[in-house]
Simulated scan of single mutants.
Amino acid sequence: MKRLLWCAVLLLILPLGACTQKEPALGKGKVQVVTTIFPLYDFARVVGGDRVEVVLLLPPGVEPHSFEPTPEDMVRISRAGLFVYTNPYMEPWVAGLLKGIDRQRLTVVDASAGVSYLPAAGEDNGHDVNEGGHHHGGMDPHVWLSIPNARKMVENIAAALGTKDPTNAAFYRQNAAVYEQKLTELDRKFQVGLGNCRTRRFLHGGHYAFGYLADHYGLQYVSAYAISADAEPRPRKLVEMIALMRSSGTRYIFYEELISPRVAETIARETGATLLRLNGVHNLSRDELQGGATYLSLMEQNLVNLRTGLQCR
């Protein structure tokens, strides 16, 4: 964080043009939006349409839990009209960063305003711990994996765009309303698709990312380690998960995007289970981004894999 504050001082001292020579030309008349993680980027693109230009702060393939912005990122944010972040638990660096940026023209949006939070689960998936990586302050930051929360985040982005660009406020509201209907339909697909399954428990060889999804659909969720993607599972936890899989006859173990699947692979070798991917939708690989993946398409694939893993009919 000291590095960030030092860079902020430089931004205040140096002429802005000297810092931004390599920045691409911006579309005239469009609201410039910078977002932190992929869901916000996707929501802003859909709501803003051709009236906005949206930049994803995370480079493709970067896991966001340990991310901190570079000086170039700070310049990019300072030049935007709108900066959208997930919440203070997901991006605790935002508060420090904003101290070094001129807020007169920049509108800052906490996309999670008004969402329903769940407590952060620890190693045993039942209590809060803060080990390694970012401090989450006792709340689970993965709010976008609850579709009702995602709807609220879309509303927040649409409202912020309307305030920033009142001329097009109705356009943003209409786009948000159409997209919220798609989210409602996706929610219905999950409710129906997960309604008749052999088991309601799924095991994940990664960090505790899917608590909101499990809570909303009445599923039991066990992860190998806690909220921080930088944490490491303790041997006792792996032994417990292997024993649980054997005793329950669970045939699948999930892993997640952008994080090594070695823990899930270890459990799979010990139990004969099959690996399935469950996407936390934090960020995309370069190929996925270029291929047009969206929040909706990734969540649809999650439903397919959950139905397989839970042996749904």
Rank of each mutant, 00 (worst) to 15 (best):
M1P: 12
M1K: 12
K2I: 13
R3K: 13
L5F: 11
W6Y: 12
W6G: 08
A8G: 15
I13S: 12
L14V: 14
L14A: 13
T20F: 01
T20D: 15
K22E: 12
E23K: 09
P24E: 09
G27Q: 13
G29T: 08
V31Q: 03
V31Y: 06
V33N: 03
V33Y: 04
T35P: 03
T35V: 02
T36P: 00
T36S: 00
T36L: 00
P39V: 05
P39T: 07
L40E: 10
D42M: 03
V46L: 08
G61V: 05
S66A: 15
F67L: 01
P69F: 01
T70W: 04
T70C: 05
S78D: 10
R79S: 10
T86R: 00
P88K: 04
Y89V: 05
Y89K: 07
M90A: 13
M90N: 01
V94H: 01
L97G: 02
L98V: 06
K99H: 07
G100Y: 07
I101R: 04
V108N: 10
S112G: 08
S112A: 12
S112L: 00
G114Q: 06
V115L: 10
V115Y: 11
S116Y: 01
P119D: 01
G122Y: 06
E123H: 12
H127M: 04
V129S: 12
G132P: 00
G133N: 11
H135N: 15
H135R: 11
G137D: 12
M139N: 03
M139T: 03
D140M: 03
H142K: 02
L145A: 07
S146K: 03
I147W: 02
N149C: 11
N149T: 10
A150R: 07
R151P: 05
K152T: 04
N156A: 09
A158C: 06
G162N: 02
K164E: 10
K164R: 15
A170G: 04
A170I: 00
F171L: 10
F171T: 12
Y172E: 05
R173P: 11
Q174P: 00
Q174Y: 03
A176Q: 04
Q181Y: 02
Q181P: 00
L183C: 05
E185Q: 14
D187T: 04
K189N: 12
K189R: 15
F190H: 05
G193F: 01
G195N: 10
G195E: 03
N196E: 13
C197D: 08
R198W: 06
R201F: 07
F202E: 05
L203E: 08
L203S: 01
H207R: 09
Y208H: 15
Y208W: 01
F210C: 02
G211N: 08
L213E: 06
A214T: 02
V222Q: 05
A224I: 07
A226Q: 14
K237A: 08
E240Q: 14
M241A: 07
I242P: 09
G249R: 06
Y252M: 09
I253H: 08
E257A: 13
L258Y: 03
P261K: 06
P261F: 03
R262I: 11
V263D: 10
V263I: 15
A268H: 04
R269E: 11
G272Y: 12
A273S: 14
G280C: 09
V281N: 08
L284G: 06
R286S: 13
D287Q: 15
L289V: 02
Q290R: 04
A293I: 00
M299Q: 11
T308K: 15
L310A: 08
Q311R: 15
C312Q: 09
